[in-house]
Design a protein around this nucleic acid. Structure first.
Lengths: 202, 202
DNA sequence: TAAACTATAGAACTAAAGTACTATAGACAT
DNA sequence: ATGTCTATAGTACTTTAGTTCTATAGTTTA
């Protein structure tokens, strides 16, 4: 799914034709504000964004989307934008920066790259959410024990740290491995790494 | 340590003055070839690189350094380079792309960013080498066992997989934890992750 | 109020991990 | 040729991890 944001009506007519011929779905917007008013999209795709727009400029929209954790890759398209704009856009993560006039193949290559990137981002995001979902079913105490377990501490040491019986630690540990559906510490560590869990400083 | 590569002699005179006043060491080269002839540098620093050079262009040099795994961040400096060059440079990882004339502060900001990035890269590289060094003292068999251990397999299962006694697996495991200086599976998993160790498919 | 969940813990047990000592055999180096 | 490293293995033992059953007490929810 491709979003075209450009104040030039001829672009909003020609690009969709090209892209739809390549089996992409396309939506067009004449301004940043119109795009922001659309309900948030969270599939895979990319944004083709003009720099010079009435209202919020393309670069401003990019910043705003970054702040909103909006993860669609952006390809800039510009008539008169220069080097400073392109540098700023790319440093902020834009996939490409095309100057009009560009040929169809250039655009399609960029779109393909952006969509591939979008897929990767989504996959990682889904994986993260899945793991965080799993971890969120742990109780507070279980999470606490979990964090100590993945540092490699013995049940005995964890028990001492938490001032509870070693036996109780074992019970929590049993619950943890049951809830997370794993059978070894190694898997727990991997889950924690992927989910970005930090361990207590000691 | 900053490397300035520019065919314009006035640049090779003025930039070092500015940079040395900021406590940077500077070396200058009039061409890509001259830089490549220098003995490889592997401290932290960055490269200030002109796009238009006699011989290999700045972009060509960038590609060559990437292929050589040369990790110094690059800041491009250009008189007449345009958007396509800046896009290509940044997509390949350049830190910044400055157009002449630029003011001193712009350059210093870019250099600071590049040097910071260089520090990060070096730190990660050193960490990686350290871990790979540790792992390289493992014998073939120990490494094999190591890879199975970090998947969470039981000694019993590893023994079966390798057609050896469970007891022998324990001996290898003992050697592994001794050589790597750790005391838990959790730490082994972390080391493997950081060192980029892959586990057998089963 | 009753049921469900959470945190705690003892007793008793099984299974797994780790260590010590001994021992054989091949490879490699001095 | 003798010593070191590596891989293997048995016996025996200790420590740790994990499970089951029972039980108490507080919290939350239906």
């Amino acid at each position: 799914k491709i979003f075209v944001i450009d104040d030039d009506e001829s672009v909003r007519r020609s690009l969709p034709m090209l892209l739809e011929s390549m089996e992409f779905e396309v939506e067009t917007f004449p301004s940043s504000e119109d795009f922001l008013n659309r309900e948030p999209f969270n599939g895979t795709g990319c944004i083709l964004l003009d720099i010079n727009l009435g209202g919020k400029s393309g670069l401003e929209l990019q910043e705003e989307l970054i702040n909103k954790q909006y993860s669609l890759p952006i390809i800039f398209i510009t008539g008169k934008g220069g080097v400073p704009e392109s540098v700023r856009a790319l440093k902020k993560g834009a996939v490409d920066f095309l100057q009009k006039p560009f040929d169809d193949q250039q655009l399609l290559d960029a779109v393909e790259e952006a969509v591939a990137k979008s897929h990767t981002i989504r996959k990682e995001f889904d994986e993260l959410k899945k793991l965080q979902g799993l971890i969120s079913v742990l109780t507070e105490r279980e999470l606490e024990v979990f964090k100590y377990v993945i540092t490699g501490m013995l049940n005995k040491q964890i028990a001492e740290k938490l001032n509870i019986a070693e036996h109780t630690v074992k019970l929590h540990r049993g619950k943890i491995t049951e809830k997370l559906g794993v059978k070894s510490v190694a898997e727990l560590v991997r889950i924690a790494e992927k989910a970005g869990i930090k361990f207590p400083s000691k």
